[in-house]
């Protein structure tokens, strides 16, 4: 019998680095060129969360970005076991789009785990610890500073999400 495969959605504004994070995690590659994601792109990935644990099968949904998630986004979220909510930490306001996405996810799938990624940490980003703390408390989720360019924090963020999913037995 094959193990269960979990669906993870990656949500956030356009250009924040959703595709880049996924491709760093799954393929260990990075491109400077911005190519907007249209609709949804799927990535299958099997990851060993710990040396001893059984590998977990994931289907990562790379979803077209927008400052406000659309009705289409809502349909894409259905059936997900968890969500990675990505913001671009170098922006003046990385958070509005993250709140929007997290709220929509929670609305569609209450109680399913989230993980926050503040991406592009390599660009010497301004820290917004208070807002990050507020979000992690509000959604009871972890937050990571990530860089798809250097790889910092990327795998830990995805694994933290996968662990929450497994621990909830979703």
């Amino acid at each position: 019998m094959s193990a269960k495969t979990y669906k993870i959605v990656v949500l956030g504004d356009f250009g924040v680095g959703k595709t880049s994070l996924i491709r760093r995690y799954v393929l260990d590659e990075f491109s400077e060129v911005y190519r907007a994601t249209i609709g949804v792109h799927l990535y299958k990935h099997t990851d060993a969360l710990a040396a001893t644990a059984l590998p977990v099968n994931l289907v990562v949904w790379d979803i077209e970005g927008a400052p406000l998630p659309s009705e289409q986004t809502r349909r894409y979220i259905v059936g997900a076991s968890g969500a990675l909510i990505v913001g671009d930490a170098t922006r003046a306001d990385p958070f509005s789009a993250m709140w929007e996405a997290a709220d929509m996810f929670e609305d569609v799938l209450p109680g399913r785990p989230l993980c926050l990624a503040l991406n592009k940490s390599d660009l010497g980003t301004e820290a917004h610890p208070e807002t990050v703390n507020r979000m992690t408390r509000r959604y009871d989720c972890p937050a990571f500073g990530t860089s798809a360019l250097t790889g910092d924090g990327v795998t830990p963020a995805f694994r933290a999400l996968a662990r929450s999913i497994l621990s909830l037995g979703l």
Partner: peptide, 14 residues
């Protein structure tokens, strides 16, 4: 209903 699904990692045929 889902428009524009690309199933493979390098599949550019939605």
């Amino acid at each position: 209903a889902m428009p524009f699904i690309q199933t493979g990692r390098d599949n550019d045929e939605p």
